[in-house]
Structure formats: structure tokens, C-alpha cells
Design a protein around this nucleic acid. Structure first.
Length: 257
DNA sequence: AACACACCCAACCGCATCCTT
DNA sequence: GAAGGATGCGGTTGGGTGTGT
């Protein structure tokens, strides 16, 4: 007896696999006419038998204007390495700092080119020892599910192994503090008083003058990259335990300390 | 030439978060 | 505040292509 899946009866069969040039054309002209968004309806209205996600991804990664394709420049590569050291696998954030590059492209580039370069001895799935590494990967997935920052876990990105606690004030002084806990998985934190610094986390979450904010930092890149980046991993304004954001690098700092 | 293996990358999947009602 | 849909993100997959034997 033939079993017919319920989903195949109720939903029209969606196309998968590679996009054809004519599909690209349809999607491109549709988005240029109607604008981005409402991806779920794009397939119906444009006649493309693709899921909304698929359309969105194709537009974002391939058809969107100002997409830069081709080889990564040395500068872009350096930037990816530095950002990855800071942020871990936060591809969309990294890509956001590299004009014309998409998160998918950055991720692929990292996995195929830079991962080997930055983590020598990194083994592939065919490696007999792969199962051991799969466990590490599972731990990482677990961390993700727990919504922990990769920065809090030094194994995730080849970052520095030791995490220490620092306190920095924006009037130019920098001082180290002892870690609150002896466990290395404790995040580094950073306290910034914004009296003397016009600063923001992002448009939605301003740090107001006179307020303190707590940030999570990976120790090693701190001194190396403070000239160019400050990472806001999470924060709570005024010590109130209120808003917590975990998804943004939000400001480029040009000052040297 | 034929095969096997490795590499690359576009696209998919599952889950989390955001937004709207 | 809850529910459901839309969107975004990161991990993974699989087909195409390159390279070695």
C-alpha cells in the first residue's frame, strides 16, 4: 500500500537544490518591484515554487545589489580572522563588517580556508579520530542551546585559553581585576562609565551618560584589538539587571588606550 | 581514460528571536 | 501576556569540480 505523506497533499511541492538563472530573474524582478520581506508570499505571487526561506536566502546571498563576489582580499581575510577571534562563529556580525560579503560566504570561507590556517591540526570528518572531535562539537552545540557565548568557552574558536577579568574605564585608565570566580569558563567582564564618552550599544539600547554597563570580553584579544573593536556581549544598564543583549558587536572604537 | 578522494560552496534545516495580532 | 507566523542565524549537507593515482 502506498503511503502518501500528509504534507505532500496539503502543501504544494517546493523546489529544492540549485537555483536556475530564470528563477533568479523572476525573484530579482519581483523583489525590485515589491521590495524585500514577506518572503512566504513571494513564492506564490512570483510563481516560484520555492519556500520563503529559500527565496530570502537566494536574495540575500546572491541576488542582492552590492554583493561582492570572487576572492577575498588579504585585508578581508585579516579582518575575518580578527573578528572571529573576537566573536567566534558569529558570522552575520563578522559579515556585517565586511562590505559586500554575506554571512554564508564568510562562514564558508572560514571553514574552507581559514579554519585550517588558524587551527593547525584541525581534523576532517574522515579522520579516524573524528569521533573525539565530534564530542567537542556537540559540547559547542550544547553551549549554543544554552545561549552561552562562544566567547565564554575558549575551545569554540581557538581563542585564548585563559579568561581573566578586566575593568576598563573610558577616561583612559585600564586596570585588571581578579576574576570573580576561579573557573576559566567565567566570562571576562568590563565596566564602562560613559560620563566621558559618547557611546552606544545600538540604536535600541543606548548607554546613557553616567550609567555603567557590563560587558563580556575574551581576554587575549582585548589588548591586541581594543584599538579597533569593542565587543558588547551582554549588558545591563544601571546595574538593574534589565535589558540583556547577547547578539551584537555594536561599535567600533578608534581610540587607543 | 577511469576511478577515487578531497575540496568548495550553494542551499537546506532546525532552532531562536522578533513581530504582529 | 499568549499564540502563531515571519525572519535571522549558525550548523550541516550534498552536488559539482579539481586533483592525484
Amino acid at each position: 500500500m502506498e503511503v502518501i505523506k500528509r504534507s505532500s497533499v496539503l502543501k504544494p511541492q517546493l523546489k529544492k537544490n540549485l537555483w536556475k538563472p530564470e528563477e533568479d530573474l523572476i525573484l530579482k524582478s519581483y523583489v525590485e518591484t515589491h521590495g524585500e520581506g514577506n518572503w512566504a508570499t513571494v513564492s506564490q505571487r512570483s510563481g516560484l515554487m520555492r519556500g520563503g526561506k529559500s527565496c530570502r536566502l537566494r536574495w540575500k546571498n546572491y541576488l542582492r545589489p552590492n554583493i561582492k563576489r570572487g576572492e577575498m582580499s588579504k585585508e578581508e581575510e585579516d579582518l575575518i580572522i580578527r573578528m572571529h577571534k573576537l566573536l567566534g562563529n558569529r558570522w552575520s556580525l563578522i559579515a556585517g563588517r565586511i562590505p559586500g560579503r554575506t554571512d554564508n560566504e564568510v562562514k564558508n570561507y572560514w571553514n574552507t580556508h581559514l579554519n585550517k590556517k588558524c587551527i593547525p591540526g584541525k581534523r576532517k570528518a574522515t579522520d579516524p579520530d573524528h569521533h573525539h572531535h565530534q564530542h567537542e562539537e556537540n559540547d559547542e552545540n550544547l553551549n549554543k542551546k544554552k545561549k552561552l557565548s562562544p566567547l565564554c568557552h575558549s575551545e569554540s574558536s581557538g581563542s585564548a585559553d585563559l579568561i581573566t577579568t578586566k575593568s576598563i574605564s573610558l577616561d583612559g585608565r585600564k586596570e585588571e581585576k581578579e576574576a570573580e570566580s576561579s573557573t576559566v569558563t567565567d566570562p571576562t567582564w568590563m565596566e564602562i562609565n560613559t560620563d566621558s564618552f559618547n557611546y552606544y550599544i545600538d540604536d535600541q539600547y543606548p548607554i546613557l551618560p553616567g550609567k555603567n554597563a557590563t560587558f563580556v570580553f575574551d581576554d587575549e584579544p582585548l589588548t591586541a584589538y581594543l584599538d579597533s573593536f569593542i565587543l558588547f556581549e551582554s549588558f545591563e544598564c544601571d546595574g538593574g539587571g534589565g535589558a540583556v543583549r547577547t547578539d551584537a558587536i555594536n561599535h567600533v572604537v578608534t581610540n587607543n588606550y
